[in-house]
C-alpha cells in the first residue's frame, strides 16, 4: 500500500501540493484526474521517489520511498515526457532495466514486443510519439513491478493498444496483486479501467472514491406530484441539487437507491423516475456540492 501523509511540495514559492493525504490500497487500479498543472505528475514523482516532499511522509509497504532502493525496485514510473538512452534500441533499454531491476522478465519483454509489433533492435529515436509510448509501456510492464505508474500514458495509445495493455494489467492484478496508478484528462477513459478514482485540485485530493460507489451513490430522481410542493417535501433525503419546473421536480440524491425510492414512493407521486448518472455527471454534482464549478477544474 502506498501512503502519503500531509505531503507538501513546493517549487520556489509555488505550492504544488498542500498537506495532501492519500492512501492507495494494494491491487487497486487507481485513477487520478485533475486539470493541467494540478499536480498529478508531481504527485507521481513524489511517490516514485524522484522528488522529496518538503513536508510529510510518503511510504510504500510501510517504508519511506525516498532513497530506498529496496522499495524503489518495486516501483516503475512511466512519465508524461519520456526519456530513452540516446541512440538506444529497446534491447539496450531492456538490458539496462534488467540490470537494475531484479524482477525484470525477458520473456515477457519478448512476448510484448511481438504482440505490439515493435522491432526491439530499431533505434527508438526513429519511433513516432505513439510508438515511443508503447515502447515505454512495454518496458515498464516487463519490469513486473509491484507498483506501476502511468502518467498520461494511455492518452497517447490507440484503442487496440490500450486494450492490450489493460489485459496485461488485469492479468498482473490477478496474479501478483500489482497496484497501478493512471493519470488522465479523460474521465471516460478512467471509468473503464479503474476501480478507484481521485480528483486532484489545487494541491490536494478533493475527491476520492471507489468508482462503483461513485456511480451508485448518486442518482437522479424525477418526480411529479398532484399538489403544489416545494423542496421542503424532500427533507430527510440528502439532496445535492434541486430543480423544479411547475409540478415536476428533478433532484440529485445521495443515498441508497432502494431506500430513497421507497421513501418517495410513499409520498404518492404522480410520476417517479430514478435514473443512474454517468461519471461525469457525478463529478459535476459532487464538485458543485463542494463549492467548485466543474468547468473551472476540467
Amino acid at each position: 500500500m502506498i501512503s502519503a501523509k500531509n505531503v507538501t511540495m513546493k517549487f520556489d514559492d509555488f505550492v504544488a501540493l498542500n498537506q495532501l493525504n492519500c492512501d492507495i490500497p494494494d491491487s487497486c487500479i487507481y485513477g487520478l484526474v485533475g486539470s493541467n498543472g494540478a499536480g498529478k505528475s508531481t504527485f507521481l514523482r513524489l511517490i516514485s521517489g524522484v522528488y522529496r516532499p518538503y513536508e510529510g511522509t510518503i511510504t510504500a509497504d510501510g517504508e519511506p520511498v525516498w532513497e530506498n532502493p529496496k522499495v524503489k525496485s518495486r516501483i516503475m514510473y512511466v512519465p508524461d515526457e519520456l526519456y530513452f538512452l540516446p541512440q538506444s534500441d529497446m534491447n539496450t533499454m531492456a538490458r539496462l532495466y534488467a540490470a537494475v531491476y531484479d524482477s525484470f522478465s525477458t520473456e515477457r519483454f519478448r512476448e510484448l514486443t511481438a504482440t505490439f509489433g515493435l522491432k526491439p533492435d530499431a533505434n527508438i529515436g526513429t519511433f513516432s510519439k505513439g510508438m515511443k509510448r508503447q515502447a515505454a509501456t512495454i518496458l515498464a510492464l516487463s519490469v513486473m513491478p509491484k507498483y506501476l505508474f502511468f502518467d498520461e500514458t494511455f492518452d497517447g495509445l490507440d484503442p487496440v493498444m490500450r486494450n492490450l495493455v489493460k489485459q496485461v494489467i488485469y492479468s498482473d492484478v490477478c496474479e501478483r496483486g500489482t497496484t497501478t496508478i493512471i493519470t488522465s484528462h479523460s474521465l471516460r477513459e478512467l471509468e473503464d479501467t479503474c476501480d478507484q478514482l481521485a480528483l486532484l485540485h489545487k494541491g490536494g485530493i478533493v475527491f476520492e472514491s471507489d468508482i462503483q460507489n461513485l456511480k451508485t451513490a448518486l442518482f437522479k430522481v424525477q418526480v411529479a406530484f398532484a399538489d403544489t410542493f416545494g423542496k421542503e417535501r424532500f427533507e430527510g433525503i440528502e439532496t445535492l441539487s434541486y430543480a423544479q419546473t411547475g409540478s415536476v421536480a428533478t433532484l440529485i440524491v445521495r443515498g441508497d437507491r432502494d431506500t430513497v425510492t421507497g421513501q418517495i414512493r410513499a409520498m404518492q407521486p404522480l410520476l417517479l423516475d430514478v435514473l443512474p448518472l454517468n461519471l461525469e455527471e457525478v463529478f459535476i454534482y459532487e464538485m458543485e456540492a463542494l463549492g467548485y464549478a466543474f468547468k473551472d477544474i476540467m
Partner: peptide, 10 residues
C-alpha cells in the same frame, strides 16, 4: 477479467 476486459477488482 481478460475475457470481458474488465477490471478484476470490479
Amino acid at each position: 477479467s481478460l475475457k470481458l476486459s474488465i477490471n478484476p477488482n470490479t
